[in-house]
Simulated assay, not measured.
Amino acid sequence: MHLKRKVPSLVDLCVRTAIDNVRYLGDVGETDLDLLEHILPHCTVDQLMHIENSTVGRDLSPVTDKLWKKFYEKQFGTENANLVMKRMKQNNASFKWVKLYEAKLKDVEEAQNKSLDRIRQLYKKEDARRQSRQVQLCSKVPPNNKRSYWGNGPGYNVSNVKSNLMKKAKIEFLKSQEVRNMAAVKKNAIQRHPCVSPFKSPSGIPSKGSASTSKQVKPSERRF
């Protein structure tokens, strides 16, 4: 025997559609509270807060107050929720849970900001301590007495650098294979063709004695 499936009413279809699209709800001021009892429990914190702020001219606390109490317990703990109820009972006061939720959330954010500020101050102090320590270490380094040949300072000596470079270049040139070959060729040429250079005076002019020896001496003639 097949059971007949109950056909949903138009109201049930509207409720299901509203639940499926609860993220798009805003002002529900014209909606019956009985319908809101089925729709609003499916909202998140942000969605329920959006509906509370969007609804104008109507108090939704008969439906949303118990929902906000659940959010309070879930967010801040059951002990804090019980402490709030105890204080309200002692002071003979009553507040909506949405207001209590907002106040507690603000307190938590302020406490977090203060904690972050303290952490930032600790980091600043630590950075200042490290910088002062680095300055102290740098001040204890002994001065360098070595002269620099490549900087613009009191030890900079251009002449020494130039002379050292010239000496090094000259030594490398004399040790080169080309110079050695030229010296060997010159030595062989001197050994094969020896020649006697005429004697020169210190002034570079050949002396008279050497010139007279190259000429024949004529006999002196007697005159009678």
Rank of each mutant, 00 (worst) to 15 (best):
V108A: 15
I119R: 11
K6N: 04
A111H: 02
G29D: 00
N113K: 15
E52M: 14
L105G: 10
M88G: 00
M49P: 00
N92W: 00
K66Y: 02
V7M: 07
E102R: 06
L10T: 10
E79R: 15
K74S: 15
D27Q: 07
E110Y: 06
K69G: 10
L36G: 01
V22K: 14
V7N: 10
L35P: 00
F95K: 01
L83R: 14
R120Y: 10
A81V: 05
K86Q: 11
K104D: 09
N92Q: 02
G26W: 05
S54I: 00
S61T: 14
E73H: 03
R87W: 03
L36Q: 01
Y101S: 04
N82L: 13
N53T: 04
V108Y: 06
N21S: 11
M88W: 00
N113A: 15
K66V: 07
M49Q: 14
D32P: 05
D117Y: 10
V84L: 07
K89V: 07
K70L: 08
W97M: 01
G57P: 04
K104T: 15
T78G: 05
V108C: 09
K6E: 11
H38S: 10
D59C: 13
V28D: 07
K86L: 13
P8M: 04
Q75K: 13
N21C: 12
A18Y: 08
V22N: 09
W68H: 07
L40W: 01
Y72A: 07
D32C: 06
E37T: 07
I39N: 13
A93M: 13
A81T: 09
E37Y: 09
L10P: 03
S115Q: 12
E37K: 15
L67H: 11
Y24C: 02
K70T: 11
V45D: 10
S9D: 06
P41F: 04
R58N: 05
V28N: 12
N53D: 12
Y72C: 09
N53S: 12
R87F: 02
V11Q: 08
T31V: 15
G57N: 12
S115L: 10
S54R: 03
W68P: 07
S61M: 09
N82W: 04
S61F: 02
E102S: 03
V22C: 04
I51C: 04
K114V: 13
D32V: 00
S61I: 01
H50Y: 10
H42E: 09
R16E: 14
E37N: 11
V98Q: 09
S61R: 15
D27H: 09
Q75H: 05
A103E: 12
D46A: 15
D20E: 11
V56G: 05
N80T: 05
V22H: 11
L116D: 14
N53K: 10
K106V: 03
L13C: 09
E73R: 10
A81Y: 04
T64E: 03
T17M: 10
K66D: 07
E30R: 14
R58I: 01
Y101Q: 03
S115F: 05
E109L: 15
L13P: 01
T64F: 05
V56E: 14
K86R: 13
Q112C: 09
T31N: 09
Y24P: 00
N80V: 03
S115M: 12
G29C: 03
K86T: 14
V98S: 15
A111T: 06
S115I: 04
E110T: 10
L60N: 05
H50E: 12
S61H: 14
H50P: 03
D20I: 00
